[in-house]
């Protein structure tokens, strides 16, 4: 072997050896990884991993960190996305050895039926955010769903679809994880999070009650007749004076069967959690 070959082999061996030694020393003498990090990783295994932020922490990792630090976080505020999933919830409860409260998840509803006619042909930036900038959107009702799908784009599980005929966002409660990303994405503030056992919601967001012309803007608009409040027997429907629209009982989620039937515009819609006449047997 020539001297050059020897030198090359020697140099490469030397550099490789030194580099390996330095890595070894670094792994030996650097402060050890937080033990809690492994715990966090294990808790994170149980979480859905959607990083939706519904729990109030920035992502599943941060939530797992908070739970690893203080398990009461899990008891008082279980992951809202995991909560409706009994099987997954049980596994995490078994692992932590705790029982969680507030297991009812949240689901999103769109307060609009999309029946309002289009006032003009909108050809701008193809988002609701863009359309809402131009004269409260291109639909006749200034409060209505614009149907350009800003909520569809942000929905982590893809639970929202747009009905192309009526141009309205439709949320599938089976897939909805209640993260609330669509709530902040909607420029019309039409989407609201409900308790998952809420049996009905209002399909209208038309707030300018005394605007008589407004009544005719949409065949499905609330006409503020308050019949729903009059027929309610146990206070399942009350009147929200600020929005000037009916509001449903959010605490125990009473079923407003009479109001659903009597509403002249039929805009009190049943949700997937509707179980018939439960509250008035």
């Amino acid at each position: 072997m020539s001297a050059q070959t020897m030198i090359s082999v020697g140099l490469l061996t030397l550099v490789g050896f030194v580099a390996g030694t330095v890595i070894f020393l670094a792994s030996k003498f650097l402060p050890k990884e937080d033990k809690s990090l492994e715990e966090v990783a294990r808790i994170k295994e149980f979480l859905p991993g959607a990083d939706c932020g519904a729990c109030g922490y920035p992502g599943c990792f941060a939530y797992a960190q908070a739970v690893a630090k203080d398990q009461q976080v899990f008891v008082n505020r279980p992951c809202p996305t995991l909560a409706p999933d009994e099987e997954g919830m049980r596994r995490l409860e078994d692992y932590l050895g705790l029982k969680a409260n507030n297991k009812v998840g949240r689901k999103a509803v769109v307060h609009c039926t999309g029946e309002s006619e289009a006032l003009a042909d909108y050809r701008g930036i193809n988002t609701c955010q863009g359309a809402a900038q131009v004269a409260s959107g291109h639909k006749e009702c200034p409060y209505g769903c614009l149907g350009l799908g800003d909520c569809v784009a942000v929905c982590p599980p893809g639970a929202i679809s747009i009905n192309n005929k009526r141009k309205i966002a439709i949320i599938d409660w089976e897939t909805c994880i209640g993260c609330g990303l669509c709530v902040s994405a909607c420029p019309q503030n039409l989407i609201e999070l409900m308790p998952a056992n809420m049996p009905q919601y209002l399909g209208c967001n038309y707030q300018a009650a005394r605007d008589i012309v407004g009544r005719n803007r949409c065949p499905d608009g609330c006409i503020h007749c308050k019949i729903c409040v009059k027929v309610s027997q146990e206070g399942e429907v009350s009147w929200d004076e600020i929005k000037d629209l009916p509001a449903f009982d959010k605490e125990c989620c009473l079923t407003a069967t009479a109001a659903i039937e009597k509403c002249p515009r039929h805009i009190i819609k049943k949700t997937a959690a509707y179980r018939g006449d439960v509250s008035h047997p």
């Binding site: 030198i7 550099v15 390996g20 890595i23 792994s27 650097l30």
Partner: peptide, 29 residues
Amino acid sequence: YGAEFMRTVIFVLVIASLVQIIEMTIKRT
């Protein structure tokens, strides 16, 4: 040592281990 021709392989080796060390340091501190 007159081994300038070996710079590619040596540099690759050094940089790869360097990034390993930096990552480890940041992860633990």
